[in-house]
Simulated scan of single mutants.
Amino acid sequence: MMGSGVTGGNKKKSQTLRGVDPDTCMMVFKNHWTQVVKILDKHEPSRCGALSFFSGLSGASPGASGGGGVLRLPTIPSDEASAVHNYVEHMLYLLMEEEPGRGGAMGPILELVVVEGVMERLFLWSLRRHFTVDLKLEQLRMYQMLLIHARQPLLHHKPILKPLMVLLASCAENTTDGGGQVEQVERELVSLLQQLCVSLVRDPSVLELFFHSTQDQGAANFLLFSLLIPYTHRQGPVGEQARSSLLLIMSLSALESRVTQHIVEHTYFCPVLATGLSGLYSALPAKLKVYSEDWHSLEEADWMQIRKC
């Protein structure tokens, strides 16, 4: 769905937007979205039906074959899928480059994205196209690009945050697609989770929205933290990113009691952490060898050789 230029991190095209009249950008965005909607409407029973289906995704896996039989509908023609792909690519560039309005108000493009539920409908479009691994990767990378490069805060708006949360949950739950593709999804998922944690630390006021965005999921309503736990003891870059992200959330818990309460009472982080520490403890030697009288001392020459983290 998303263009490779956006999802791959290449912003060369977006440079040409600087200095362009904002009204022109808005007109182009609106025209592109109109064309996308024409295609989307052909494959959705109705606007209300689509959004009611989306509302029900919070309590179930979006990739399930039940869910109203969405994944059993006829295949979408390749020319229509390609058209949406190209329109959305240009729309994302316009959204990323838009400056906020006076006093930090939403720009007209962002306002249209929120009012029209653009991100919800694009997520539904991915589901309608069977939500393949490639589509998961595209959506994960799309949100990473928006969070990193957008000139306006996006997470303050529930029509953007809610489909993002459902996307994260669906990518975490469906890990049976096979081998390296699953690893790719996991890498992009944890990378996006880390970016979200960084955004939370920079702007803790968004934390309230994260709790409310998935409040219908009960005890698991702080989905961001719960999704990181399975990667706590993972080796390699994925595990390092997950642990770094968890530490960022822990730093927030010192300021926000709700986060502390959620971690202790509504997640299995404590037993996971205890199990890991227990494993490390059991790996310690039963006895320490005494090599010299000053074996217990750490001299300057010793700590100078320790690799800096």
Rank of each mutant, 00 (worst) to 15 (best):
E138K: 05
R128E: 08
E44G: 09
Y87H: 12
T34E: 12
R102D: 11
S126D: 04
L95N: 05
K30N: 07
F123M: 11
H32A: 07
S52C: 11
Y93T: 02
W125F: 14
V36D: 02
F53H: 15
L73S: 06
R121N: 02
A105I: 06
S78A: 07
E120S: 12
V133W: 00
Q152N: 14
V118W: 08
R18D: 14
R129T: 12
Q35L: 14
G107T: 13
E80V: 01
V37N: 07
R18C: 08
P108G: 01
C25K: 15
H156L: 13
L110D: 02
G103D: 10
G59L: 10
S126F: 00
L40D: 01
V84W: 02
I76F: 00
V36Q: 02
E89F: 08
T34G: 12
Q35R: 13
M27S: 10
G69Q: 08
R129I: 06
Q139Y: 04
D21T: 12
R18I: 10
L127E: 10
P108S: 03
K136A: 10
K158F: 08
I148A: 15
L57I: 05
R151A: 15
L40C: 08
L140P: 01
Q144V: 01
G101E: 06
R121S: 03
Q144F: 00
A81K: 04
